[in-house]
Nucleic acid binder design. Structure first.
Ligand code: SF4
Ligand code: SF4
Lengths: 163, 163
DNA sequence: ATATATTTGGATGATATATATCCGTAATCA
DNA sequence: TGATTACGGATATATATCATCCAAATATAT
């Protein structure tokens, strides 16, 4: 039950892109440099975000990644599901149908109480993730993060967007 | 983000043990037969439950597994944590400390907003799991499950506890 | 005491998933 | 045309999950 590390990368990339000046984009090379993660592997995750519409891309010189819609309308759940898929963590393997107590298939129309309880807990998790937008995370970071770090980030970004 | 299949097995074993007549125990061989899962691997999971105090064991002839406390005081969270551990699913790798925007370690005393949001969602998941007891699952099953299946289970159990 | 039944934990192997890299192709811009 | 970039398929490596096996400890019955 460990989440993919790529989820953390993807969220960080989204918050960085959200802080980007309007009309600019960051290529995967710069995103991987900023976060100090392997470029090719990060590219795979960004492609997942792209397929999900969370980011938009333009190819060619000056191209790269930017948010696909306003940060207010991108939730943590969107990002998590884009990277990890929408399958429930708890997989029902229907073991109740096997073994000596099994009866005809007609008795198993409805998922059993165990599965329902597990899925219901997952639903609560997803609801919480849905409440948090990328915009909220950016706003929070703007208040909490060391000003020195923000300054360093901005000057590093200007080396990109400026030339 | 898939949960271990062992969690499902463990929950099923707990509900079966909860339905057992007072004073009886089931050895791993019978539990694996009932659920049609590999015996040696199930034994590993049961040992985790045993270490967590969820089940009690007695060795030797007539021995086996029984619940370690009343089913009203065993929650799904107890079982999940016994099998999967208590580590958070979202692992913070502190990537904010790397890359070109990193500043001194003093700036990173507090977990960032991303990690806090992810962990908060996990907390909601755990709270939901904590609300569901094994006793509640058994009661629910007694109402919902096909009477024919219950009858088959009982007669199969009698072949154990009876001799 | 002895034989039998059972859990326990360590060691080991097999399989699946996550992580990481590479490369050819397509798209875009100067 | 040439440079830059995203995309997707193929492949390799590392790690985690799943599964089996075995020796030791413990309990019961005879
Ligand atoms: S939890 Fe219930 S429904 Fe899900 S696999 Fe187990 S038996 Fe089947
Ligand atoms: S989420 Fe924030 S705190 Fe957690 S690893 Fe990423 S940067 Fe570090």
């Amino acid at each position: 039950m460990k989440m993919s590390e790529g989820i953390e990368w993807a969220i960080h990339c989204c918050t960085l892109l959200a802080a980007l000046p309007e009309g600019t984009a960051l290529p995967v090379g710069r995103l991987s440099e900023f976060h100090d993660v392997p470029k090719d592997y990060l590219a795979k995750h960004l492609q997942s975000l792209s397929r999900a519409g969370i980011v938009q891309t333009t190819r060619g010189p000056g191209g790269g990644y930017r948010l696909g819609r306003p940060a207010e309308r991108i939730t943590l759940l969107d990002v998590v599901e884009a990277i990890d898929g929408k399958d429930p963590c708890f997989q029902c393997t229907e073991i109740r149908r096997r073994g000596p107590s099994a009866v005809g298939a007609a008795a198993y129309k409805k998922p059993c109480g165990i599965a329902r309880a597990m899925w219901s807990a997952e639903a609560a998790w997803r609801r919480e993730l849905q409440k948090v937008t990328i915009a909220a995370l950016v706003a929070q970071a703007a208040e909490e993060v060391d000003p020195k770090q923000i300054e360093k980030s901005i000057s590093w970004l200007e080396r990109t967007t400026g030339g």
